[in-house]
Design a protein around this nucleic acid. Structure first.
Lengths: 344, 344
DNA sequence: TTGAAAGCGCTAACAC
DNA sequence: GTGTTAGCGCTTTCAA
């Protein structure tokens, strides 16, 4: 049925090992034989069989891609896009991706099958994942790359967002517009990225020489979605007019904050400037479109894959942290503060 | 390192072939030997190696899952959930899923690698896909299951939404509320599901004995998203007060329609009842929450996988159409028509 | 009911 | 440079 390496060898009039060498670009094959082999390969539409190769090389040719179920089925395709970047990159290095989701809580009876069967050569873990699964994989000596997540101990490679720089860009942007009193609303402080954004806010405020008001730093929400953004904004508004701009920890919270303003009759950006972070779909579609920080999601996925492949090839070191740069995208949710609102 | 079948055989004191029989639940092994083998398997944490098995059985143990890139990175996790259902079901039948996306336009140089390498035993194609890729796969005699899509010729298995029944439920719901003049807005008439919804609307209106007004059937939009819903609704409104309810072809268009109403100062459902279809995230989060048709997405994915596995096992027939039932979800976007609006 | 052995398609070590 | 050959771990005849 499908052509095997023997068929190619026969047609080209060479040994199977020669075909193997050509196909894998290994070793010293004469231009002439190589040409013969390549022709036979093309003619028979030969493709090496994955399992046969895997059996002898003791490599599966697969990478695992693990993320939590709720991350994946989230309305915003944040993680989907990371996967897309990974899958796309995988094609160019000839790996397959085995995507699976896990529940938030580690359950040793629900270990991904590709780990049990050792059917992957490395694993990419995306977003918040149980620490135990990371340990489990590490124990099995499989290379790991975390994406948008990190563990306290710096053993594992990670692809991270430059959260601090993003916040810095936002603060500077608002500062340039004339804002002096900015609030920050965050949530889900279990995620290291959220902590970074929150910290970076305080730091930047101080290094920029702006007054820091602890009442304007609200990070007590459990999660960071539209609803919690709404709630946080309401809290802020109930404190009175002490700020002219609100920096939300992500786009979803920003959308919620905008809604809270609007339902109280405030206008964005006229009465308050509000910013997001991540640049997801809703940053563009919501009204007003959000000024936010663009996070290159596909690029993160691609970087993770490339790094993982590098670890296996021996060209990259395990335990490296790669930080992905971000950039400010100015849209319609920020403007100069209304002079009369506050003069500080 | 990892235990092989020989290790198990040695520990259990039997032949490798016996272990194989036990592990695969094949054939007549005595209770006693079976017990010995199972213990050895557990003790060594033995799992058959995918590639080795694949090599001899000539089965890859993988299924391909293909959908278009834009479907997958859509804001609403419609297709993501279908995948989730597939992946989950795959675990129970011991298959791996190889997910890949393709561009809308078929490009023979970009054929998924798992097809070239014959590294899948069957393929699930989801949503609108190029016909040519279906032909390509069929030519290679790989079983195919389409999900939420169908081709004119009824050769391939498909898992479909009961669109007609969904529309029927909506019309009846509105009718019960007292509506007599309903409009329908649709888009993307390249998708067979959209055509079905549109047709079903007209049919149901007639069989219910309601007056059918062709001006209230708007299916001329290119796509079916928030924006086109908005545009369609504006067209409708510009025609004057000839209807009290609007049935949108999906939730996104319904959201757009609601916005169009609101920006003209109309209130939903006070002035107009508006319904969606699909029951995606935004049906719940948008205000008012949409009355819509719930489509069990995970179930569709699971059904597709189960069917594909069935085809391979010989317990299901290729070319079968499975229709997934849907149900009405009443929320806040529908109510009785305002008596003074129209009495017809 | 169990065991011995062949061989799936490929790579890699070793001859030549 | 190229060919011969021994397995990788498993399933599957075929004998016993």
């Amino acid at each position: 049925m499908t052509a095997t390496i023997r068929d190619v060898a026969r047609l080209a009039g060479v040994a199977v090992s020669t075909v193997s060498l050509v196909v894998n670009n290994k070793g010293r094959v004469s231009k002439k034989t190589e040409e013969k082999v390549r022709q036979a390969v093309a003619q028979l539409d030969y493709h090496p069989q994955h399992s046969a190769r895997g059996l002898v090389t003791r490599r599966s040719g697969n990478f695992g891609f693990i993320l939590s179920t709720d991350h994946f089925s989230q309305a915003e395709p944040f993680y989907t896009k990371i996967f897309l970047g990974t899958e796309f990159e995988a094609r160019s290095v000839d790996y397959y991706i085995l995507l699976t989701t896990i529940e938030r809580h580690f359950n040793s009876s629900k270990i991904p099958r590709f780990l049990l069967e050792r059917n992957v050569d490395g694993v990419i873990l995306v977003g918040t994942v149980p620490h135990k699964i990371v340990d489990y994989i590490a124990e099995r000596r499989l290379p790991i790359v975390l994406v948008d997540y990190e563990l306290p101990r710096m053993i594992h490679s990670a692809v991270l967002i430059d959260n601090a720089d993003g916040i810095r860009q936002i603060v500077h942007h608002l500062h340039e517009l004339g804002h002096r009193h900015m609030a920050f609303i965050g949530g889900d402080m279990k995620h290291p990225g959220m902590i970074q954004r929150c910290k970076a806010f305080q730091e930047t405020i101080e290094t920029t020489g702006l007054p820091f008001d602890p009442d304007l730093l609200l990070c007590d929400q459990e999660t960071s979605n539209i609803e919690t953004g709404y709630v946080a904004m309401e809290k802020l508004l109930s404190q009175g007019d002490r700020f002219t701009a609100v920096i939300a920890a992500n786009d979803a919270m920003a959308v919620g904050a905008v809604r809270a303003c609007q339902s109280r009759g405030y206008r964005v950006p006229l009465d308050f400037s509000i910013t997001g972070f991540d640049d997801v779909e809703s940053a563009i579609t919501s009204r007003p479109a959000l000024t936010t920080i663009h996070v290159p999601k596909e690029k993160m996925g691609a970087t993770a894959l490339r790094h993982l492949a590098g670890i296996i090839k021996g060209t990259a070191y395990e335990g490296t942290r790669v930080t992905i740069p971000v950039r400010l995208v100015k849209r319609d949710s920020t403007d100069h503060p209304r002079s009369h609102t506050l003069s500080a």
